[in-house]
Every structure is written in C-alpha cells, then in structure tokens.
C-alpha cells in the first residue's frame, strides 16, 4: 500500500470512527454511560492524549529527544495561555518566536 493510500485510509477511517462516536452519544440512553468511572475516563482521555502530543511534538526527534527552538516557543505559549490570550495569538506567537530563534542561531 502506498503512503498516500494509507494516509487516505487513516483520514477516512478515523473520520468514520469520530462520527460514530458522536452518533453513539446521541443514541444511547444516558444511564448506559452514566457510570462515574466511564464518564471520568472519557473526559480524561483527551487530556492524556493531548498532553502526550504536546510532549512528543515539542521534544521528540526521530527516536530521540531533541531540545531546540520549540521549547522556548512552548514556554511562550504557556505564558500567553495563562494570560488568557486567544488561540490564534498563542499559535502564531509560538511559531514566530521559533522562527526568529532559528534565524538568529
């Protein structure tokens, strides 16, 4: 299977999966998913996965950890989020800082 086909399968398969999860929620009786452990875990899943993605995205290299301009960019993003800055400002500022740091060094 070519890489392009594999990526398309991932795009379409995951889209179908995400749709079915939405439809499932609208269709099942509320009591079925009311167990506190299930409800808690479902809310913690995105927190865990997104946090792992932050870590891998900022410090991950090919099979190793790499510290570069992405780390100060993340620190700036955290500072801006703490100050209540909107999404686009956070993302663009982080990219700009990384770009400037790379230009300088």
């Amino acid at each position: 299977m070519s890489a392009a086909v594999a990526t398309w399968l991932a795009v379409l398969g995951a889209s179908l999966g995400c749709y079915l999860l939405k439809l499932l929620g609208l269709s099942v009786p509320a009591s079925l998913l009311a167990h506190p452990v299930v409800a808690r875990t479902a809310l913690l899943l995105p927190v865990a996965l997104l946090s792992a993605l932050v870590a891998v995205q900022v410090l991950g290299g090919t099979g190793t950890l790499v510290v570069d301009a992405r780390l100060p960019a993340l620190a700036l993003a955290a500072l801006l989020l703490w100050r209540g800055a909107p999404f686009l400002v956070v993302v663009v500022s982080a990219a700009a800082l990384a770009a400037v740091l790379r230009l300088l060094g």
Partner: peptide, 12 residues
C-alpha cells in the same frame, strides 16, 4: 516555526 506552532496548538 510551524513545527513549534503544533505543540502550542496542542497546549492551547
């Protein structure tokens, strides 16, 4: 710096 933007997006 778009690679740094991805980490910032996940954090946001």
């Amino acid at each position: 710096g778009l690679d740094a933007a991805v980490g910032a997006a996940f954090l946001a």
